[in-house]
Computed example of a mutant assay.
Amino acid sequence: MDWVSRIAEERIREAIERGELRNLPGEGKPLEIEDLSHVPEDLRTAYIMMRNAGIVPEEVQLAKETVTLADLLRMCRTDEERADIRKKLNERRLRLRLLMEQRGWYGAAAWDTYGERIEKRLGGDEA
């Protein structure tokens, strides 16, 4: 055991003795172990911190915006509204496609298999 672990264990033991760890949320309940096998090991801490802060990757945010704009486009009543939303939608789709190309997703086997379905689901063919 390294010195950092020893200090941490000692501080935890002292806090238990002082009663500082009583009545905490989740006390007596099993820990929920999250499966992070899909996240590279060196990125897990950053992933958890970003998730807990409510930060999502740009491509996820763009995908959500794309779906929202596609829904709005279907509900437009005037050509002027439609043109404005279509412009925003095309900008988001282009940015999303560029991000995915930069990350190498378009050449990936998974993208070859599921890419068309993903784009349809995001409203790519409906607007």
Rank of each mutant, 00 (worst) to 15 (best):
M1A: 13
H38E: 06
C76G: 07
E34S: 03
R11G: 02
V56N: 06
R18Q: 13
A8E: 15
A53V: 04
G26E: 03
G28E: 11
R86S: 13
A127F: 11
R121N: 09
I118E: 06
I55R: 12
E41C: 03
C76R: 06
R103G: 05
E59K: 00
A46E: 05
D112C: 10
I48M: 10
V60W: 05
L31V: 12
T113D: 05
L31F: 14
G104H: 06
C76L: 11
R77H: 09
T113Q: 14
L24D: 09
D79T: 12
A127H: 14
L69E: 04
Y47W: 13
L21K: 01
A46H: 04
R11I: 08
E20H: 10
L36S: 01
A46T: 04
E9H: 10
E34T: 04
G123Y: 03
K64F: 04
M50K: 09
A109L: 09
R13F: 10
A110Y: 07
E119W: 12
G104M: 03
G19L: 11
D79F: 11
S37W: 00
G54V: 06
D2G: 15
E34N: 01
L24W: 10
R11K: 15
G54M: 07
K29L: 14
R117L: 05
E116Q: 12
G54P: 08
E101A: 09
E34M: 07
L43F: 05
A8V: 14
D79R: 11
R97T: 11
W111K: 05
A63K: 00
W105I: 08
Y114M: 03
V67C: 06
